[in-house]
Amino acid sequence: MDKHFYLKLVYSKWTLIFTAIVIVLNLASALLLNPDTAGLMPVLNLANLFIVLYLTANYMNVHVLMTYNKSHEFFMALPANKRDIIRTDYIFHIFMTLLSIFVIFTFSLVQDGFHHLFGMIMITGVNLLIASLYYTFFAAEWFKNVNIMVALYLVPMGFTFMFYYMPMLNLLGADLSTIPQWEFILYTLPYFVLAAGILTFAVTYFTAQKQAAKSDVI
């Protein structure tokens, strides 16, 4: 297995453990009990929200953890090509994104809600857009400003939850024919965002690799 992939797994240990727990909880709730009567729903909601946030931001989290005690300087002096490091970052991010999709999917089983699937598409699109932006900066200055980037991540992601996911839940079952722009925002926009996310993620992969080879890593 790729060396940096392994390193990322080491740094993502707790994220992965919590992800597994949430997935098991989701599946168990879907199969065994009615979570509404068990009073479990608020807990599940929160756990899923957090784990999705963590999974989609995990690539930054790993970078931040690596800068503790400036240990990235040590890891970056170990043998690896810079282009390969960027490639592994992209692959690992796709892996974590797929995992976040899977979490939302298992959550949708609990509530039996198709709206989660739209939420999933929207979140994945936004996630890829942010990652593209992040890696454009990361390739140029590597670990120098990773903390600032994490703070910036929360803005668009927060927006998506507040102005997409929440309305989606609140407008559930409402007659949307009277407010047609919501129809577009809720059920068409996610596809556009996802397409844009995939496109920029693919394009920045190449630009970031090229840029990374030209930059100081520490």
Binding site: M66, Y68, F74, P79, N81, D84
Partner: peptide, 23 residues
Amino acid sequence: VEAHREALLNRIGFVFSEDRFPE
């Protein structure tokens, strides 16, 4: 050195003046 970074660093042992280990 950039294209062969991995192969070259395999042949180098380094010690930094301050430790950079994950705590």
